[in-house]
Design a protein around this nucleic acid. Sequence first.
RNA 1: GGCGAGAUAGCUCAGCUGGUUAGAGCGUUUGAUUCAUAAUCAAGAGGUCCCGGGUUCAAGUCCCGGUCUCGCUACCA
Length: 679
Amino acid sequence: MKKFKRHLVTSALPYANGPVHIGHLAGVYIPSDIYTRYLRLRGEDVISVCGSDEHGVPITIKARAEGVTPQDIVDKYHGMIKEAFKGLGIAFDIYSRTTSPTHYKTASDFFRTLYDKGEFTEQVSMQYFDPEANQFLADRYITGTCPHCSNEAAYGDQCEKCGSTLSPTDLLNPRSAISGAVPVMKETKHWYLPLERHEPFLREWILEGHKEWKANVYGQCKSWLDLGLQPRAVSRDLDWGIPVPVEGAQGKVLYVWFDAPIGYISATKELTPEWEKYWKDPETKMVHFIGKDNIVFHCIVFPAMLRAHGEYNLPENVPANEFLNLEGDKISTSRNWAVWLHEYLEEFPGKQDVLRYALCANAPETKDNDFTWKEFQTRNNNELVAVLGNFVNRAMVLTHKYFEGKVPQPGALTDYDRETLAELPPLKASLEDNVENFRFREALKDAMNIARLGNKYLADTEPWKVYKEDPDRVKTILKIALEITANLSIAIEPFLPFTAEKILGMLNTGHFNWERLGASDLMTPGSILGQPALLFDKIEDEVVETQLAKLDANRKANEAANANKNVEAQKELISFDDFGKMDIRVSTILAAERVPKTKKLLKLTIDTGIDKREIVSGIAEYYQPEALIGRQVQVLVNLAPREIKGIQSQGMILMAEEPSGKLVLMGPGEKVTSGAKIG
RNA sequence: GGCGAGAUAGCUCAGCUGGUUAGAGCGUUUGAUUCAUAAUCAAGAGGUCCCGGGUUCAAGUCCCGGUCUCGCUACCA
């Protein structure tokens, strides 16, 4: 294992279009904070950088929707996010932002270096241009009718109603979302990073050189490399972002994914004039903490950028976590299904460590996990209160009761005393191994085991009984209990910094270096302890109920909002003649089978009364083929045939679509002759 | 459909390069205890290690096939 001189820890830049929630914390910021605090405690040279990611189209759209500037949006959320992190004790050395002047210059220079080295390719393409607003339109800024489901409010990149991935030219009746004008196609030039040039290197570097990466990370990289890398655009036609620093690039900015990771570099520059040694000296170990959605950027794209530049180190590891769910459902900002950090800090003052503990103990390290308020309560009451808080309190109260709060002078140790103390060094070793390999759940258990050890020691030695016959022996016992407490304060520091601080306050000692963990001479006999205070309070059922009720209220409010949103406005009036053109018949399904190599399609053979024919329909997700045979449905029989997956689909089966996207067949309420006209 | 990751005790998870009776925490049962926030300590119960084949002296662990969950991707109304 290579030994490094210093460490650079980066945490994924939160996107400044919303606040931070528990999913972000469990996935990225709590692990990175534990890792950083651990290295600092060990006396390593380490810096931890992060900041807000403030460019990109979604921010401009949010700004437009709220009638403010993009700068207003990012100022608001950058402030909120920064405060919230600070409140939870996430100890970044710097929390910067990608709208900072340093970042503009850094990202701009970075692009220019790659440009001058010929690391980009240029490509001219046709793109929609808004003649009224006099600008090119990002995919997201073009609306029109979805070619698949006829939703009239589809975006240029996707239709949110049917979920189709679209390209702007797929849209029927495209409109500019800015001016409402009909956009025109116009030539535009963009720069691309040819990832395929770096493929041989990346293949060797990751697949051969970093087999130790987590399975999910390694697997996803391998999947991408095996599919073959494609050039990726690094510029966009947009007015919010960092201008492309090249002649003839007016109105173009760096694509947000290109500028964002450079934010790690800019933040380091703002932090220290010695930033280069953290980025360019091969003796620096760089680790990127991210969520699984960011694996490709951090393992393939950003390393390709750094390598193309030529001067920078590549990450040693990218410990990406999976996702955290909330009460059985995916966390969603737009559906307001989340526990927001800034709200938690307000509603649970002084309980930062409880959240840190719950999220670390249940972190989605190997697969998606579920956060429930019930479990949050259980972790607090049965582990923090009962095991950790209780042990510290016992040691403190007993010492105050028998020795007026003075650290007693121990006598000779028994074998059992020695055995107990001998358990500390192995716990230290295990904890270190776990943290250094990003197994924070296990590491936290190691730390908690010190408190368990302490509880067991007190139960076995029974100082409250022994005191009656042999008060001197109790001196030794309580000295050892206090040593265990002091050890505990060191071990939990990376995980529960607020609690560690409180324990040190009670012990009335200064900070201990990490290397002292495992020692049994941390407390000086004769020194005076502070007053015992409870480290954690029980969380009552009502608190859990309140939070669940709050989530439930959010869900209902959101469903109500969605119900309104999803009931489309009535279409324009048509004549009776128009209606008369449609020939809708009751038909009976005779046979049904899956269309091979598709997820949603069924091939149905139906009896329309007129004839027997085949229709392809996208209901495979909602209906089993066998269950359809014999069912009667409504069919638009005179719709022009269309070939789908090589099958002529002769007509359309009428269905109702739920807001969730679920499709429901519309059959007659009672048995009807096939071929009966509907109208 | 393709790719990736998961599937182990009621719950949340460990089990690294295959090797004695499959582990931990929480929950549960019983007992002990009272210094402590009805906290603690001990003992017990609880597992066809997703299913089916195979390799091996030996498989939770390796190989093949399948099922289910999550994600990415393709197709698609």
